[in-house]
């Protein structure tokens, strides 16, 4: 095939290599010629092909859907989670965002709660632990009433959706100078707490999720870096909501509120 309409640029890649969580890591430099039509990860694919051909182990990095929805991908690109383009996951970033002769530093997401597995892959399972603590509405299969029995005000439904758009990629934690997971946690708390269905467990959920979050992550100082890094542009407002709900959860007379 030929006749691609993208131009070819040459970039210098400084890629983090680390064989395991305990091994020391370091940067490796590679030159790569790449079409500006390629996606960022396709450039890494290409580099891996070349490494493999040269008998060197390919760089480990994670990605799956490459449509910006599964949340599997995510690296630091020149110090920014998911790279320079706003509201874009790493897999959706294309090389046309870069120029000829650019130096690109590629590092794993960093936080103590996200230990490096290998090279650019990190373990983000504490995010699952937070969901397990209460990120659900307790309704057994078959126990649901007709879906239209409870109208949900459109404004509330829309806002719940804004929060529910979170893809769980962990960029918020990576971008946060404190390695706090407030945006991730508050998105789930906001999603469920704004819907009528989520009210019964609102307070216990908030309490459990916040306290689990704090076992793994840092404390929010309201920098706002998380929202900037978020591929779904989830708002800081949800963090405020979580903070408010958490304090309410701690003082509320849940018996009289009819909620646990």
């Amino acid at each position: 095939m030929s006749g691609s309409h993208g131009e070819t640029i040459n970039v210098t890649l400084k890629v983090w290599r680390q064989t395991s969580a305990d091994a020391p890591g370091g940067f490796e430099t590679h030159q790569q010629a790449i079409s500006t039509d390629a996606s960022f990860l396709e450039m890494l694919d290409l580099l891996n092909e070349e490494l493999n051909a040269a008998g060197k182990e390919p760089i480990a990095f994670e990605s799956d859907c490459r449509e910006g929805i599964c949340g599997t991908c995510g690296v630091m690109i020149n110090g920014r989670a998911h790279g320079p383009q706003k509201a874009t996951a790493t897999c959706q970033l294309h090389m046309r965002e870069f120029a000829d002769d650019d130096e690109i530093v590629i590092e794993p997401f960093r936080a103590t709660g996200f230990p490096v597995i290998r090279d650019l892959a990190v373990d983000r399972s504490p995010l699952d632990a937070i969901i397990e603590a209460g990120g659900y509405i307790s309704v057994n299969t078959g126990a649901a009433s007709d879906a239209n029995l409870t109208p949900v005000p459109k404004a509330a439904a829309d806002q719940a959706f804004d929060a529910a758009a979170c893809i769980g990629c962990g960029a918020c934690v990576a971008a946060c100078p404190n390695s706090a997971a407030q945006l991730f946690t508050s998105a789930k708390i906001g999603h469920l707490g704004l819907l009528p269905q989520g009210q019964a467990e609102r307070w216990s959920r908030t309490e459990a999720m916040v306290e689990t979050m704090e076992e793994f992550f840092g404390s929010c100082t309201n920098h706002g870096e998380c929202t900037e890094a978020c591929p779904k542009e989830i708002s800081l407002d949800f963090i405020a909501l979580m903070n408010r709900d958490y304090m309410k959860a701690k003082v509320k007379n849940r018996g009289l509120a009819g909620q646990h």
Binding site: G79, I106, R110
Partner: peptide
């Protein structure tokens, strides 16, 4: 927290 890629603060 610092990244070698030079932490460009966006919002902070």
């Amino acid at each position: 927290k610092r990244y070698a890629g030079g932490r460009e603060h966006v919002a902070a």
